[in-house]
């Protein structure tokens, strides 16, 4: 395939109007990044073993704290999750989920509140599919860290996320908030 070189004039401008690429260019860039991420994830696991999960988790948590700094602080978990849904956007589209026999999304277990989240669209899952890596690996911890970091920032309390189930179309995770963990 011959690569066509595009020549033009570049002027200093405050807000660039052109990105210099079309949908195919975006797709190529996305796929290259997916391959990079997959390669980094498997290399990290090879070098650090199970420690890879902790490294990626910490990176995600930092991102979560950064993203949620602009969000309104609240003590209402469901309101916090709605706000986080807006911040995470369509690339990490999630919804609250409950089994049919349960009346509300949240359940109280001692000083903890538990809520199940169903992640439907996930860039991490797509990256794993692109690179042929299994789910529940280190890269998944990026999203767990991200969610925990964002919850901690918005609610100012400690939280954790566990994986219940991973699937090709959606993943179910349990978010646990500890009220006494400030």
């Amino acid at each position: 395939m011959e690569i066509e070189e595009i020549k033009g004039t570049f002027k200093p401008e405050l807000i660039p109007k052109e990105t210099g690429g079309d949908l195919d260019d975006y797709e190529d860039a996305l796929h290259v990044l997916m391959k990079f991420m997959g390669s980094m994830s498997s290399a990290l696991e090879q070098v650090s073993g199970r420690g890879a999960n902790a490294i990626v988790y910490q990176a995600g948590k930092r991102m979560g704290h950064e993203s949620a700094k602009m969000m309104e602080k609240t003590e209402n978990l469901e309101q916090a999750l709605d706000e986080m849904g807006d911040v995470l956007g369509h690339e990490f589209y999630f919804e609250k989920w409950k089994p049919s026999g349960q009346s509300s999304y949240t359940t109280q277990e001692g000083d903890q509140v538990v809520i199940k989240l169903l992640f439907m669209d996930c860039v991490v899952r797509q990256t794993l599919r692109r690179t042929g890596l299994p789910q529940k690996g280190p890269l998944c911890y990026l999203l767990y860290g991200y969610m925990v970091g964002a919850v901690e920032e918005v609610m100012d309390i400690k939280g954790k996320i566990d994986i219940d189930h991973v699937g090709p179309n959606a993943c179910l995770k349990t978010l646990t908030i500890k009220w006494s963990g400030k």
């Binding site: 589209y93 669209d121 692109r130 699937g167 090709p168 179309n169």
Partner: peptide, 28 residues
Amino acid sequence: CMACLSCHEICPAQAMEHQDIHVAKRLY
């Protein structure tokens, strides 16, 4: 059913169809 579609992936006969679900993006 939360439409994770694990059953689709594991079914050797592709014998099931899920209707009216959120189909995740497949940008990969």
